[in-house]
Design a binder for these strands. Structure first.
Lengths: 347, 347
DNA sequence: GTGGAATTTGAAACCGCTTTCAAATTAGCC
DNA sequence: GGCTAATTTGAAAGCGGTTTCAAATTCCAC
């Protein structure tokens, strides 16, 4: 392809041709198989040769070609991670955790995002499959159950925030119901009776669980569930802002709000602020997720903490177990409420 | 490796063996070369065969093995992206933008993070190289210049937030100096004379530029640069919080603060809030980066907007040009100040 | 209908590594 | 020292594509 141009002098920045395992073998005076064995530790090799090969590798600065390894070995040593939006503090935290969990292993992560669109998610999963990832972690998938099961026949799966049966599927089910229950219970315990709810996107399993938890807490306290106190959001700051405005516009009375995630809580707090309402004096606000920023909002946000980081890390570790053929043991941190300054007891 | 266990009945969830190009060829009654040509559009193929192959691909659900393609073709069709922390709203936005910029091409991104540590960054770059990425985008690199230049002989590079010479290096230099100047000028224009500065990590080219901009603005307005008004942070919320507390503890007077990034501004605002100081009534605050959340802080933050998203997208597009051998034309959005509610005119 | 150019095709080499299999070496033991 | 068993090693066959090169077709003008 590239032809040597005799006219021009050799350029300093010319592309270097890669060092191959064969060159290392020749340099060390052994066969390629031996080099491979040393590289992978797949067999004993006489000590003198090990040293010779190590030296050759160092001298030549050899770096194995991953594509060749994948092709020959049948494993890519990489794990696909599907999220919905790589920005978004929530996924950011999860991804960082997964990266960390994979760190000690030789696997590395391929991050892709589905943007909450089934077609996008499908496309990027195909992408991962064609890259022959050894496993896929689905951090909240939008795909129908049957499709996930079908996918699991191609590659082992770990799901978070979702429960799907399958022998090559492991669920780190971070059921949101108890967390939502916890948050609402807390507000009720603080004497609040008129608690508004800003929900997540409709038809979203996760969001539905949070609504369920809210309802369960109300009914356990014999408080009636009032439709006019519930308004839908979309898990974004702007959505929370708009939702709170809609709520205020209806004139319905409430002393507390539970937002289905922290970002919407931020938006809601701003909307309250704009109307001259002070949190928590006039309205108590609780969020869900405990994003890193939530300790630094004004006021710092009371929110449901589920240890996204632990879940992510745990998912990564479980995935390694899974692809190595061991039985993954999943541990899930407890859901707690981080009580900060956006709530206060009523009266 | 896997041995068929005659005792057990075939399991429904058994791993499917992948469909290969050769199987497609056989199914369609053509040679593998022909299938390859159709796949890549590298040569004309009779229409009847094209249709037969297309049908076979669909029937068999063929998905090319990326490792094989990379090995044979010499290109992996993937771009490495090195950031410092995949969480962090700043990088999140940049990564999402890069992902978007790569979308229309056939390239995909491999994200890795260096955690502000040279050794980590080196390790993950090696990782990318061994994966034979076709190019690397360094979103703020910690590495010494010489090392970056050496790397560029292996793979073409795009740097952001940094300026390094090299024929296979493209810099999207988002010099921070003008932005910092803009922010400080604005505060001065609003009548502020005692403007504190919360800086980024020391020895960080980016952070130094911001300090330079701050100083330049002061001196242009014939205001003296006072050491006691300057305090170091680390680009994190917590760092900004601590920095502001240190500043307040010294008792030094100021009516405005310029924080070298938005996250530190958040922390600073909380510290002010805790001491009963109201933004912007008592102190005006300006940040840098214009993170998505900054429209939703209380009050919404006045901050330097550099269009991280555009930079990221532009970097991705330039990278494609670069690896395809065309000359990249980089466009950089203008740096502007997003004036919101955290600042007010003095008097 | 025919010759020669242009277009389509397939065979085979190769990309760089892993792994099997059998040969070569070394070790162990009587 | 000689024989077997255990350990090391290398040759060679893939892995699943791409690409070159030459053969086979098709096309066109006369």
């Amino acid at each position: 392809m590239r032809r040597a141009d005799a006219q021009q002098p050799a350029q300093s920045g010319v592309e270097e041709t890669a060092v191959t395992l064969e060159m290392v073998a020749r340099e060390a005076g052994v066969s390629p198989s031996t080099v491979s064995r040393i590289l992978n530790g797949t067999a004993r090799v006489r000590d003198t040769k090990v040293r010779a090969v190590r030296a050759a590798i160092a001298k030549l600065q050899f770096m194995p070609n991953n594509a060749a390894r994948t092709l020959a070995g049948g494993r890519s040593m990489s794990i696909g991670v599907v999220t919905q939006a790589i920005d978004s503090p929530f996924y950011g935290e999860a991804l960082a955790a997964i990266e960390k969990g994979l760190l000690r292993s030789n696997y590395s992560a391929l991050f892709v995002s589905g943007h909450w669109r089934e077609s996008d998610e499908r496309k990027c999963i195909d992408h991962l499959v064609s890259r022959r990832v050894d496993g896929i972690i689905l951090v909240t998938s939008c795909l129908p159950e049957a499709e996930i099961q079908r996918l699991s026949r191609t590659v082992p799966l770990i799901l978070t925030g979702r429960q799907v049966e399958g022998e090559r599927i492991q669920c780190l089910d971070a059921d949101s119901t108890p967390g939502a229950r916890l948050a609402t219970d807390y507000l009720i315990g603080q004497g609040h009776k008129r608690i508004a709810y800003i929900g997540g996107p409709v038809n979203h399993p996760d969001a539905e669980q949070r609504l369920d938890g809210y309802k369960a807490a109300l009914s356990a306290a014999r408080l009636s569930y009032a439709k006019q106190l519930v308004v839908a959001g979309d898990y974004s700051d702007a959505g929370g802002y708009a939702a709170m405005n809609r709520l205020l516009d209806t004139g319905v009375q409430f002393t507390a709000v539970f937002a289905a995630n922290d970002q919407m809580a931020y938006g809601a707090m701003l909307a309250l602020h704009r109307r001259g309402l002070v949190v928590p004096r006039d309205v108590s606000v609780v969020g869900f997720d405990d994003l890193p920023t939530s300790s630094f909002t004004i006021p710092p946000l009371t929110t449901v903490h589920r240890g996204i980081a632990e879940v992510g890390e745990s998912a990564a570790e479980a995935m390694i177990e899974l692809v190595e053929g061991r039985a993954p043991r999943v541990r899930l941190g407890a859901t707690t409420l981080a009580v900060r300054e956006s709530t206060r007891p009523l009266r």
